[in-house]
Design a protein around this nucleic acid. Structure first.
Lengths: 211, 211, 211, 211
DNA sequence: GATGAATGAGTGTTCATTCAT
DNA sequence: CATGAATGAACACTCATTCAT
């Protein structure tokens, strides 16, 4: 009945409408929370004449929400990736990833607020949409850690687990940012980066004095 | 109209029913998420004849949810506190807090899943119920950090910020646990504790070689 | 199941309870309006342990409300009747009835507020409870009017109709009193009595035979 | 969300539906009383598929009820105004107002029954919807009375109070009409008009014998 | 493609009434 | 006689979704 998301056969206006609706959905969810982001509200923000139009362009509410999640990850990937890709040492890659992520959180609060609220409000959002993407991100991060260990930059630890922990430090930072919008981001970033450095760094030339 | 939560003057059956309903609410929210945890669902799980019975025992949905939050924090306090109270050094107190929290997360996944979903789904849950409690917990944690710094156990850092970060490491661990129920908790705990140790420990006898 | 209102076989405590509940019902309805006067509210004001007790003593909500109406009319009859019974001329009887009614309205605002709210809120209250009583009152009033016409005190008019109109002047006055509690009752009474006098008095020839 | 009552931008079907629902509400309230006039009952009478449709067209129950009140006053104004506007003398204006009102009451019993029941059943109906309109009507009536007094048509009295009393005579007549649908309206009207005439008329050609 | 009217299941909450104790 | 727990129908209101035009 509706045009399906098979991205190939979308009219131009189709695609534009979908983008417009996704953007309105992000704005709405960020503003009202997931639970109160009804089609009516989203349609109002998108300047649509009726909530029915959303149903016309998306198969489901889940379909729309899935697109929203995809959009946020897409933008995030675009922004953060170059930040760590250019790095030479593992630590500078890690640092780039941390700082890039935090900067992205700061400049795209609306997107991330929407994402967080979806992940919180939709019981299956995590497993359906975020899970795989997070796994990929985690894998990339773990790879950097392994590289750092091999290069002697990082101490011994289980790279998978530590990757998870670092990832969660970032989630925590995001939470902090969204909850306390006035927080001192620069100071927070510095403290977090330093903490990570201490947490993973190999004891420099100090093997004998190890406790 | 309804018997109010002034815990003093509750009938025995009243108290039992309330406990039963709170338990069913925890179960339901853990299973379905906050948004879909309707009185109808909770009543079904509690074996009640009608959703109206919940309204009979609780003034509000918020009243019930508040009781759920209180219950989770109550249990958590009971389990975690002794773990760090007995400690002598700041580091062993911190370690006890970390390990105790993680153990509690592990043994009470349902409770914590419900709590997390409430904090995510209810727009005022954080400010109304969790905020004060978290602040108290953070203050206690910061105090331990300061104690450690004075005793020379911990390096120099801003205790408030690092307390926030450590708190978020625990939230992250909880998230991990709830998301990946099959994860190796023992390994994860060990890694997290080690990471924290490196993150906060003072460089022993290495003041001169400081970066 | 319940003791029926057949007033004969009531225990002493039974009767006392019923009076108490009726009084609480009057108070509640006057205060909250008919629609919000739930058994729970009435029971609270009566100091009863449960709304169920009202159901125990009255067959129905309608049963209770009927008793409330009866009580108000009973008190009203007791207060107003002597006021006009002692009169000699028809006009003084009429005047006594008017002034007595208004005085009763003034001193028993709670009772009358409850009565009015019942008559307004209960779709069948008028036909079931108030209708017959009003008819009786009207008949008495018409009788006075006829007496006055025969005595040459009153002009020619249809006694039944004018009785209705005078009755409604009183309803109007009551409405006024309940709506504007600060109104000047004395002035209002004087104006109303004068108006009635002009409205029914026989033309001229009365300058000499003035009341 | 819903089309708002800004009567300008209503679709044709919108307007029709709203009229239909208002009409059904009037019918329902007249029949069942305000308290039992649920959306379900109104929807049934309007032939709607679900109560939800009413919520779709009106923001609130109060919104709907407000429209009902407005409608009744609108119709009433249309019918009664011309009746007294054409008058030359104060008395003929007053008479026109009385007769016009009574005629309107007679031909629109359903509308007025609904209005009365709303004013009685809704705790804020009077202050919110009827109060201002009644005040305006009273002011107009008092003006006529003053005019009559200045012209020597009416005796001395407090115009405000007598306006209230006359207004209440009409309310009383309405009450009578609604309560006793079989009553002889013509006779009643004649009697009421005569009574008012006597009640307010200046003693004719007896200026010298003035009390 | 787009519109707006409609649908119907679902929400939390209230309340008279019942009944075992 | 009295209690308090329980019941279930009813309430206004919300919302994703459908569909004729």
């Amino acid at each position: 009945m509706q045009p399906k998301p098979g991205s190939a056969d979308l009219t131009f206006t189709e695609a534009a409408r979908r983008k417009q609706i996704v953007a309105a959905a992000i704005e709405t969810i960020a503003e009202l929370g997931y639970a109160k982001a009804s089609f009516a509200q989203i349609a109002r923000r998108a300047g649509l004449s009726s909530p029915g139009l959303i149903s016309y362009h998306f198969a489901n509410k889940d379909d729309l929400i899935g697109q929203v999640v995809a959009e946020v990850y897409r933008v995030g990937g675009e922004v953060v990736r170059p930040n760590s890709a250019a790095a030479t040492s593992a630590w500078s890659a890690l640092r780039g990833y941390l700082e890039g992520s935090l900067a992205f959180y700061d400049t795209h609060r609306g997107h991330l607020l929407a994402l967080v609220r979806i992940l919180q409000g939709h019981p299956e959002a995590l497993s359906r949409w975020a899970g795989p993407r997070n796994a990929a991100e985690l894998a990339g991060l773990a790879e950097v850690l392994v590289r750092g260990q091999r290069a002697g930059e990082f101490r011994e630890f289980d790279p998978g687990t530590v990757a998870v922990i670092i990832r969660q430090l970032l989630s925590g930072a995001l939470q902090h940012l969204l909850t306390q919008p006035a927080a001192d981001l620069t100071g927070y970033t510095r403290e977090l980066v330093t903490l990570c450095e201490h947490a993973v760094a190999a004891p420099r030339r100090r093997i004998k004095e190890q406790r």
